[in-house]
């Protein structure tokens, strides 16, 4: 009999200590629901985090959880998954944890394509240290550590992901629970490293950072939900779409200038070439809608499986070496009688 699970089966008894109104609550709820739908036994799940507000998430999961050190969750998760590929391994990191102090581990986890699911909670601020700019804060951003505005460019996580040859990138919005759940399920189902950028609000230090797209009134005109095989259409009236003009994307209105639905691009998340994914992943307002949903989802060999395959190959070639005593017999030796 197959066991079934409810979201509460993934919820620990620990009291959630994020600020009321923090976007992380919503992502946590979506994660509980996604896991219930995936139906993986909670004992077979390991949630690894670094340091930061969002990195408290493992304490709120009734799974195995490891709250580690700043920036290193990707490296630790890589070790967990390589050591035991049977586990479902999740990494939860904030924008500082994942992209500043942990930037190196992030790109290398993607390059290796280790099968971990990375949830990147992006609130564009350091919350736990009480309000400094982060690597995703927009240029000119005023914070406690940039009272006159930052003078540096931010990272765009999608760009970094594709630059590191990431094969799965998706984006969710904290307040959009339904789509979040669907995307987290897809991320879990993807074999290989997956990145879900969760746009979350920090109600205390960066309130409204994603307001442009999170407001219900304007959201439909400012975001586009990408689904594999579906037309790239958006807008309150479902009359806007994306087309390619040469090598650039442009927003068009269906019904104007002779443009029909047939002219609108169809989303191919499985396309090997990441060029269009790159463009979709970096779209921003006011000219473009922000893309939500699964932007790229391409199957590729995973690191942990390749490690095990290589071991099996070598073992098949050296059947005479089954243990250390056998191995010693292959050395150049001499005997003292």
């Amino acid at each position: 009999m197959e066991l079934t699970y409810a979201p509460k089966d993934y919820k620990s008894s620990g009291k959630v200590k994020w600020c009321p109104g923090c976007g992380d609550h919503a992502v946590l709820n979506s994660l509980h629901k996604a896991m219930a739908e995936l139906g993986v036994q909670p004992d077979k799940i390991a949630v690894i985090s670094g340091i930061g507000c969002s990195s408290r998430l493992p304490y709120y999961m009734n799974t195995y959880g490891f709250h580690t050190i700043h920036g290193r969750a990707a490296a630790i998760a890589t070790g967990v998954k390589t050591a035991n590929p049977e586990l479902s391994v999740w990494q939860v990191s904030g924008d500082g944890d994942c992209l500043a102090i942990g930037g190196n581990h992030f790109i290398h986890a993607l390059r290796r394509n280790i099968d971990i699911n990375i949830i990147l909670m992006n609130n564009r601020i350091y919350g736990l240290t009480k309000g400094q700019y982060s690597p995703t804060s927009p240029k000119g951003f005023v914070s406690k550590s940039s009272p006159y505005g930052t003078v540096e460019e931010p990272f765009r996580p999608a760009e970094l992901c594709f630059g590191a040859r990431g094969q799965f990138f998706a984006r969710i919005l904290d307040v959009d629970l339904k789509n979040s759940q669907e995307v987290l399920i897809k991320a879990a189902q993807h074999k290989g490293a997956s990145v879900v950028e969760a746009l979350v609000n920090c109600v205390i230090f960066n309130d409204g950072t994603h307001k442009d797209i999170s407001d219900k009134e304007t959201r439909d005109d400012r975001v586009i939900y990408l689904r594999h095989g579906e037309k790239m259409i958006f807008g309150k009236n479902r009359d806007k779409g994306l087309m390619l003009e040469g090598l650039t994307l442009k927003v068009v209105t269906i019904g104007e200038k002779g443009i029909t639905e047939d002219d609108i691009l169809t989303h191919d998340a499985h396309c090997q070439d990441s060029t269009l994914h790159f463009k979709l992943g970096t779209m921003c307002g006011p000219e473009f809608p922000v893309a939500l949903g699964v932007i790229r989802d391409v199957e590729a060999p995973t690191y942990e499986a390749a490690v095990e395959e290589q071991i099996a190959e070598v073992q098949a070639k050296r059947p005479q070496v089954k243990c250390l005593n056998d191995f010693f017999k292959t050395l150049e030796t001499w005997e003292i009688k």
């Binding site: 580690t68 490296a75 070790g79 967990v80 390589t82 050591a83 190196n104 581990h105 290398h108 250390l324």
Partner: peptide
Amino acid sequence: KDLGVKTVQAEDEIAGICTAIGA
């Protein structure tokens, strides 16, 4: 590998120990 050893050549020293801690 004939004896089933898994090694990760990590991206840096910190990842070297962190993958080991994960394992």
